[in-house]
Structure formats: structure tokens, C-alpha cells
Write a protein that binds this DNA or RNA. Structure first.
Lengths: 203, 203
DNA sequence: GCCTTAAGTAGCCACTGTCAACAATGTATT
DNA sequence: AATACATTGTTGACAGTGGCTACTTAAGGC
């Protein structure tokens, strides 16, 4: 991970290395409460070196959160089916990818949606965060145009879809989707209800 | 808050006072990262006094989380309409009360659902936490019996409802339900979609 | 050969959870 | 009533952490 015993005095690309190391650490833990000192330790540099690249810890956290949104958007884009016949076929793989992103990167996902750091709203109105939301809006828009989705204000439908998927993701991350409560395939079941709520009953 | 200048050596009910103080602090902050020492400070006792009543900090956190579930359940019970004609009339006030509990007590709600402390699953399979979930299950059961809700495995419908409401609550807590994204009444809109997904289209 | 940049070393300062030792109070037993 | 015991506080300290800031040293470009 670090310790090339005689690595050069100058790292060369410490900024990127710090970010990568922090992302690695997020992958291993459930919370995003890593310390700058440990990031430096694992990157193989002194505990003060990161300060040459980030004014403070919050700046690093914000940068990482933005990278998280980029990756989430990429995941969703990759999951988008080429030619979906039904609304369910369109939504299911994307929603699964969304939840999978969260459960695969629980700490990162928590960081992305944690209000304290990053000044909450400001951060989420950033274009990189909004790009994720646009994926959802586009599905709904196309569905309404094609007649497979009820004609309702699209922002409200977006709220429902986002809320449900975000909620399922958080519950999954926290390990609360236990069969005793929500059955053996809670995500699929929840998506069914969502699809039936969004879908045009006439078709 | 504290400092009756000559209060007796023995507090009398410090256990309760510590819990109350901690709940007060949770009400003021967004995160649940209070320190035991500050709880003691604000309760007007020495920093080690709480250890006479709680083996460690985690025990206090667990106790508080359980109280949170009790209060949430009470909120929901109080919001349950006497005689609801439609499924929407039945669900809406309870869902609103749920989300309101979260936005009124963001730190407490976060604590209740934070995985790290309390050993996650174990805690949520506790009867006091499950009691909240039962409120939801009962609505669904009654709705199916009355024919207002589609006949589907009830655990799956519970997953959808819980996921959506939990998600909306978290988004609201984090201040992300901004009109630019989700319109002006996102909760109502989301509930509409949920009701239409749960509801029996035949009626 | 100078200057900027990027790294290292050292340390400050504040703070935390927890424990041990001691003090005050209340309660039960003789 | 007197004494012993248990409970519940206080004080003080330990060990560790963590963000951040100086100041120093190495490397590279001009």
C-alpha cells in the first residue's frame, strides 16, 4: 500500500493518492469517520503532508463525496437497459444498481448524504450531484411520453421513486432488511409496488 | 439547566436526568455525536458520575435509541385516524407523523437507525423497535382484509411502505427535498404514488 | 544558483472514554 | 442509637486521538 522503502521525497501525485487511500478506507468501514492522520499513514506520507493539497479535512470529504456522485451516476448509466419493453424492465435494473452501489460502498454513500459535512443543500445542488437525479427524471419523462406512466407532476413521481430507493438503500446498508420484517426479497417487492404506483393502469 | 448552587450531594434521579439531558442535546444538534462528558456537564454532575448508571457510552446510546422507538410508536398511534374512509385517508396522517418525528428529532432518528452503535440488527429485532413496525403491518393487514389493498405478500408491501417513508424522512432530515428537485409537496406526492401502488385498482 | 513547491518532523492544544481512589449520603442490622 | 455496608457522587489522572500549525529539508525548474 505504501512503503516503497526508498520512495522519492516527493510523492509525485499525492493529491490523487490521498483520495484513493481515503476511498479505500471508506470501502472497509461502515462509517465515514476516518481521520486525516490515518489516511496519511496509509498513503505512506507524514501526517501533515495532505495539508499541501487540501486546506482541511472538510475539503477532502467534499471532494470524495463528489466523486461518489460521479460513480453512482456511472453505475446507473451502465445499468440502463438497451431496450426495455415494460416500465418494470426499465426501472428494475437501475434501481438494483442504485441499491447495490449503496450496499457496496456504504460509508461512501453515507458520506454523500450526510448533512453535516459539505453544507448539505449547497452540495446537492451541485451539478455533479444533480446529474444523478437527472437519470431518474429522464426515465419518468420518457415513460410519461410513451404512456406507460401516469400523467402526474413529474417532480412528485421523482420524489416517490427517489425516496423509496434511497430508503431501501439506507435500510439495506444498516442491515435492517431482515426477512422477519420484510420478507425474503424486499427490494423486488418494493419495486413492484413502486411500478404499480407509477404505472399507467390503462395499459 | 443545572446549578442549584447547593444541590444535595446525591442527585436523586441522575439516571433519568442523564437520559433527559442527552435527549435535549440530541434535539439541538443534527448528529448524535454527543460526548458523555458534556452530558454530565450539562446535567450538572461530574464527568464520571454517569458511570454509576451506565456501564459505558454505548449503553446510554442504546437506551436512548429504544426510547426513541417508544416515542415514534406513540406518535404514530396518536396520528392514527379514527375512521378513515379511503386507504389514502388512513395512510397519510400516519406517514406524515412518521416523517415529522424524524424532522423534529433528526439526531435521535439518526441514532435509532445508525448501524454502528447498538449492534444494528439485534437492536431492531428488539420488541420495542418491532412495535413500530407492527403499526405498519396492521394497516396493511386490515386494508387487505377490507379489499382496499391489493392481495400481495404483506411483507413486501411493508418493505415498500417502510422504505419510502424512511427514505423521505432521511431526505427531509438532510434537507434534500428542495423544490428544484422534487416539487413543492414531495411527501404528499410520494404518498400518492405509494397509495396507488398499494391500493386495489378494482375499487 | 535562486525560488517555488512538496515533503518531513515536531509539537501544540483540546478533548475523550474510562478507571481508581476517596467522600458523602442513605439504609439495614445489631 | 451505633455501626457497618451499599450507593452515588467527586477528583484526578492516564492513555490516546486528532486537527492543525510552524519550521525545516529535499527536489525540480529556470
Amino acid at each position: 500500500m505504501q512503503d516503497a522503502p526508498n520512495r522519492p521525497y516527493h510523492h509525485g501525485d499525492l493529491r490523487r493518492a490521498v483520495i484513493e487511500t481515503a476511498l479505500d478506507m471508506l470501502r472497509e468501514e461502515k462509517g465515514w469517520q476516518f481521520t486525516l492522520r490515518e489516511v496519511a499513514r496509509r498513503a505512506g506520507v507524514s501526517h501533515a503532508a495532505p495539508y499541501k493539497h487540501f486546506p482541511d479535512k472538510a475539503a477532502l470529504l467534499a471532494e470524495i463525496a463528489m466523486i461518489g456522485f460521479d460513480r453512482l451516476r456511472a453505475s446507473l448509466a451502465a445499468a440502463k437497459p438497451k431496450a426495455a419493453k415494460t416500465l418494470r424492465d426499465e426501472i428494475t435494473p437501475i434501481a438494483r444498481a442504485y441499491v447495490a452501489f449503496g450496499t457496496d460502498n456504504p460509508a461512501l454513500y453515507r458520506l454523500m448524504f450526510s448533512a453535516e459535512e459539505g453544507k448539505a443543500v449547497g452540495m446537492h445542488l451541485n451539478e455533479r450531484a444533480l446529474a444523478v437525479f437527472d437519470v431518474l427524471l429522464e426515465i419518468l419523462r420518457r415513460g410519461q411520453a410513451a404512456g406507460s406512466i401516469r400523467k402526474r407532476p413529474i417532480e412528485g413521481q421523482a420524489a416517490a421513486a427517489w425516496g423509496l430507493v434511497h430508503g431501501m438503500t439506507m435500510l439495506a446498508i444498516d442491515g435492517l432488511l431482515v426477512p422477519e420484517k420484510v420478507g425474503s426479497a424486499p427490494l423486488d417487492a418494493a419495486l413492484s409496488t413502486l411500478v404499480e404506483g407509477l404505472g399507467n393502469p390503462a395499459t
